[in-house]
Structures are given as structure tokens and as C-alpha cells.
Design a protein around this nucleic acid. Structure first.
Lengths: 203, 203
DNA sequence: CACCGGTCATGACATTTGTCATCCCGCATT
DNA sequence: AATGCGGGATGACAAATGTCATGACCGGTG
């Protein structure tokens, strides 16, 4: 019996190519393709899928949240995360959300079908390079509010704007940004944002 | 006789899927796959390719420069740009560099092969939505140095660092950043960076 | 030639950031 | 009850940033 697969990726080209490629495998059947994360859990249930392949970066519901939703709605369905950027923080968060596998889009295409089969068998699949990086990188040092403020700062607004958006006093915002800069090692707010993003500490 | 195609994209997964997908077409033959832009022109010449499909964002040589290199080395080879982000500025720059087509990765997979055929016939293929956006967005208002300094600022360094990197005085850097902020409409340097990037004015 | 725009630079200035010390509160651990 | 930690806030101060006027040089263009 073939593996029933749901694919979610916001880039139609990638999604289509992936579906075509994996659909060629005799033991894999692509039962649904989604362009965002919102409908994934429902689609998994509707088609009684065995494996869900999710991109981390998606409009609507992000891949991590979507993974959690899938696990809640259909515990028998394994989740394989596929991502463009090898952000160490994503790996850990995806695992905590119940994902069984995590591969970057740099993976040779042939290994993909194999990864799908492995997670379906209940095995865990993790990109080795990324796993190593994840260990050295460690957890996010940021508290929830620090991450929140830093994320609010990520599109370049002023302290006043961030304060308004986060319902905080300007001084408090500066304190959080200062703390975030100290913890990330960045010298400016913008640098801190970049570092945190590269490590997958925001979202 | 089949169309000889060279594919360059930094994501192995995408590249492989694209190659597999297009290779299935009876009239298309994928003769080379590259992971960066540096070897594209050489590969085109070596395999006497008819069409080169290039990603804009690539390590090493970016897609725009690679397109120009291909046109120089092999004027008979058409270039089709494929990009993740629909940055209006990219479109214009790609066209100026000699590209015949420009599609985003949101394009339905089936239209891709058709796009390859069209550029091979000498036709131009442009994503309609992007073309419209490109018209309203207009050209980059930034001068070369302004863009250069803004780009140097894009990873969050201080004025002092940017000045050192660009071999300019700190005051000059501040002037350029100020001008860039005025032209982009951003209130802070970080916002100006974001706006310029979204419009494809950097690179 | 005179003019303009882009490049590079100074200096002065107002504003915004970043840093720090110091509070208060609530909550969990001990 | 005491301690520690995170959230939230204030105020003061130093450093960085953004703004503006001004001037010089150069290359193209009317």
C-alpha cells in the first residue's frame, strides 16, 4: 500500500515539482497540495494522509504551527519539514512541535523520497550538518518579550512605533532591545535582528 | 530537434526537481545543472545550450550578472530568469542584462516548459502581475553610491564600519544614508534597507 | 562657457539610540 | 519567608544617528 502524502509549500513551482517528482515513486501517492499552512491539518484528515511535507516559511499559518496542528488533528500522520534556510532554531522548534524529520532544500532530490519513507516508518530524519549546527548554536537566549520586541523591530520601525505596536513604554522597548543586543552579540539593533533571524530565534 | 537547457539554481532540491520535470518534456533536454552562477557561461558554451534558466539569487555570481555573461559568451542562447521574490527592480535589470524571460517561482509548473519554448523561439515571457508592478514601481531613485552604501548597511553595521568598507568618510556615509532614506521614504536606515530590497534596488 | 548632477568631504546641530542604575510587581523555587 | 527571574517602568547620560548648510571637484549637456 502506498504512502499518502500531503505537500504544503508557498512556491507553486517548488510545490508542483516536488509533487511531480515524488508522485513518480511507485510507493508514494500525493493526495493534496497546499499553498499555505492554514488548511493543512484539515487536508490531512480529509485524505487520511500518512505523511505531511511542510515548508517552514509560509503565508498564513507558518510550518511549525501547521505541524503542531497536524499532530493534534491526526497523530498517526508523520510530519517532514522542508526548509530553504538551515536555521538551527527552526529544527528544535519543529521537533518540539512534533515533526519527525527536517531537511533543507539543498538536499539531493533522490534522498527526499527516502526521507518520506523513513518518517513514515516512524524513523527520524535530520540533516546531519544542521543537527551539528543546532547543537553548537544552542537554544534561543531571548525571553518571549525580547523576541517579540525584536521581531517588531525587524521591519525597521522606530522605538516609538515598536512601543505603540507592543503596548509598551519607549524606555522598556529600549531595555529589551538592549538586552537582545547583548544576548545576540550584535552591536546595533539591526544586527541583532539579523543574528536572531539567522538562528531561527524569531518567527 | 530538442531544446538544450542549462539550469542554475542554488537550491539542490529545486534544481533537481526542475531538471526532472523539464527533462520529461519530449522537446527539452537538460544538458547541465549548476549550483551557482560562476560556471554558467562556460557550461552554456561547452554544451552549446539553447536556453539558460537562471535563479536571480545565487551564491558566487548573481543571476543578473550570469545572464549578462551568457549573452556575451553565447548570443544565440536565450536566458530565462526564475526568481523566488517578485522584486520589480530585478525584472528591469534582468531585461537590461539581456534576459528574454522572467517568471516567479509561484508560476504553475506546466507553464514553465511553455516559457522555455517561448524564449527559445525568440519571444519574451514576463509574469504579467510583475510587469504591471514594475511599471508602477518605476526605476530605482538611488544613485550608485547610495545603493552601495545602503547595501553595505544592510547587514546592520555601524556608520564607522560602513565607512571603512566603502572607503569613505563617516560624514559622507551619513549623507548618503540620509539621501537614501529620503528617496525610499524610510524613517530609519533599516527601513530604507527593507524598502530598497523589496523593490530590488540593491544587489 | 555656464550649468547641473553626482561624488566626496566638514562641521554643527537636534534627535534617536543604547546603556545603566534603580525601582515595583508577580510568580515559582527553595 | 527569602530568593531569583521575568515583565514593566523611570530617569539620566553617553554615543550614535539623522539633518542641514556649505564647499570642492569632475564630467556631461545645453
Amino acid at each position: 500500500m502506498s504512502i499518502r502524502l500531503v505537500i504544503a509549500d508557498d512556491q507553486a513551482l517548488v510545490r508542483g515539482a516536488l509533487a511531480a517528482l515524488l508522485g513518480l515513486e511507485p510507493d508514494i501517492e500525493v493526495v493534496a497540495e497546499l499553498g499555505d499552512g492554514t488548511g493543512v491539518a484539515a487536508a490531512v484528515v480529509e485524505h487520511s494522509a500518512d505523511v505531511a511535507m511542510l515548508d517552514v516559511e509560509m503565508p498564513g499559518l507558518d510550518g511549525i504551527s501547521a505541524a503542531a496542528a497536524v499532530r493534534r488533528a491526526a497523530p498517526s500522520c508523520s510530519v517532514l519539514m522542508v526548509t530553504t534556510f538551515g536555521r538551527p532554531g527552526y529544527l528544535k522548534r519543529a521537533m518540539l512541535a512534533g515533526a519527525s524529520g527536517f531537511v533543507v532544500k539543498d538536499t539531493p532530490a533522490r534522498q527526499l523520497a527516502e526521507a518520506v519513507r523513513k518518517v513514515h516508518q516512524g524513523l527520524r530524519v535530520v540533516d546531519p550538518a544542521l543537527a551539528a549546527e543546532s547543537l553548537t548554536a544552542g537554544d534561543s537566549p531571548l525571553t518571549d518579550r525580547e523576541a517579540e520586541v525584536l521581531k517588531a523591530a525587524s521591519d525597521g520601525g522606530t522605538v516609538a512605533n515598536i512601543a505603540k505596536a507592543a503596548m509598551l513604554s519607549e524606555g522598556t522597548v529600549r531595555n529589551y532591545l538592549s538586552a537582545a543586543m547583548a544576548k545576540t552579540g550584535g552591536r546595533t539593533r539591526a544586527e541583532a535582528v539579523r543574528i536572531a533571524q539567522d538562528n531561527g530565534w524569531l518567527l
